[in-house]
Amino acid sequence: MSKIIAVHSYKGGTGKTSISVNLAATFVRQGKKVALFDLDFRAPSLFAILQCEKEGKTWLNDYLDYKCEINQVLVDISPRIPNAGKFYAGPADPSTESMRYMTTRNSNWEMHALKRLMTLKKSLIKEQNFDYIIFDTSPGLQFSSMNAIAAADFIVVTTTGDCSDVNGTKRMLNDFYDVMFENKTGLVLNKVIDPAKYGTEELAQKVKEEYKVPLLCVIPCFCEVTQAKGQYLFPQDKPNHQFTNILTKMATSIENM
């Protein structure tokens, strides 16, 4: 069973953060203990979306930098989903100095960062009984995202119909996900306009042929998902929304992989 999930894409704006947050919330609703981390150090967003700006000011950046332990980074946001599992967020430092600092790290620093991310499997999953760790990454080939992918067991690749994205996603899938790290991978087709005009089976077959990975789900273009950022968590606040249903199925597929 996959425990550490990295949500990644070739281009920006494919819905990584919305999917990460709501997938995490789906697992929490099912009674799971989940930690969601923001690995987009160049454009952090989790702190704003989950309104978990911290008082203590220790961020995921500090953990990677050996300045604190992981529990000092985690913010308990379980009250957002009452009577369910446990929900923790590990936001990235949104300050400009920090973003600048992160862009100037050398490969030695990144090697240590990879080690720190890999240690989470022991510290959170084995010792603190977390069911899932979810990494929301930054798009494309970047150190922080590659580190997350190398540390993960399963990669959710999100893509839209945009031709530049399709092309890059294919290259990424062929060049490094499966081949390089032998990770399990699943594809999410997001922001699909009028998905009803394609048959589900037909689409799954097409994805398998084109990308050579299984199709996890097709998400139609929902304006309310794009606009929801921060206002609500779909599994909790909109339990009957189609997006919630799709996420539930996706969570089951990941659990069974």
């Binding site: 490969s107 030695n108 090697m111 150190f143 590659m146 081949v179 390089m180």
Partner: peptide, 12 residues
């Protein structure tokens, strides 16, 4: 350093 990019460039 054996960072992730170095890993990417290594033979399988």
């Amino acid at each position: 350093t054996m960072d992730v990019m170095t890993l990417l460039n290594m033979p399988d």
